[in-house]
Design a protein around this nucleic acid. Structure first.
Length: 234
DNA sequence: CGGTAACGCAACACTACGAG
DNA sequence: CTCGTAGTGTTGCGTTACCG
């Protein structure tokens, strides 16, 4: 267990560290971000990104996973987690101590409705355009904007888009991921050619899924992590 | 028949590069 | 420098296929 009362004399000012998470998922074809309504300490009642203080005996990454679990009921394995950047502007937190936040990007496919926990009385998936319109606590609007840009850029150069899909998917489903994250239309003809020429992006399972039109081929994520050549935004 | 997906073809824009 | 060419990427059109 971590000890809340550490008797320690430092020659340097003591900083507090938090982990804040920009968690994205797709719901009804729209890119949504996880927001919680703060129930404790400062900015009570304001919407914010899920997050909280890092314990002295846990890693930064573990703290991010723990906050996702505590504030939204999300488990490891449901999301892929990547460090976004850190935020340390003086005065970014109204509390007396200096608070530095290490922000994380979490991506997951069809994540379930969040279950609010300790530090939040309400947690929900909010379409990103609506989330940007809310007055988020702290500098979370900036963190959200940075996370959104990171996610958009990662779709260009990595195979991370498959993290928004189920284990198997069709090319139109994958294309709708790009369209939702980029908030832009993607040409189906060119998209298909780019995906299939990118080495190891997707693997044909040999199955087809019968929907309204011609049966769509079913693919699964390939072994590649980075995209060669990249699929660029216009 | 209307809607959707896969596919083939070709025109067009843009860029890089070497020859003159 | 200009010009022609090759390569790459974009866009549009038509065809085939399949389902409700």
């Amino acid at each position: 267990m971590y000890c809340a009362f550490v008797v320690y004399a430092s020659r340097f000012p003591v900083f507090a560290v938090t982990a804040d998470i920009v968690a994205f998922t797709l719901r009804q074809g729209r890119l949504c971000v996880l927001l919680v309504r703060r129930a404790s300490s400062v900015h009570t009642g304001r919407w914010a990104l899920p997050g909280g203080f890092v314990h002295v005996d846990e890693s930064l990454e573990s703290a991010a996973y723990r906050e996702l679990a505590e504030e939204a009921g999300l488990r490891r394995g449901q999301v892929v987690l990547e460090q976004l950047r850190s935020y340390g502007d003086v005065g970014r937190d109204p509390r007396p101590e200096r608070v530095v936040s290490v922000a994380w990007l979490a991506l997951g496919a069809g994540l379930p409705d969040p279950k609010p926990g300790t530090d939040a009385d309400l947690a929900e998936w909010v379409p990103v355009d609506a989330a940007i319109g809310r007055e988020l606590a702290f500098d979370h609007a900036q963190i959200l904007a940075d996370g959104l840009e990171r996610a958009r850029a990662k779709l260009e150069y990595t195979t991370i888009a498959t993290a928004f899909c189920e284990a198997t998917f069709t090319l139109p489903e994958l294309r709708r991921v790009y369209e939702a994250v980029w908030d832009a239309a993607v040409d189906p003809r060119n998209f298909q050619r780019k995906v299939l020429t990118a080495d190891g992006f997707v693997v044909d399972t040999g199955e087809v899924i019968r929907g309204r039109g011609k049966p769509a081929k079913v693919y699964e994520a390939g072994p590649a992590v980075s995209l060669h050549p990249p699929i660029l935004r216009r």
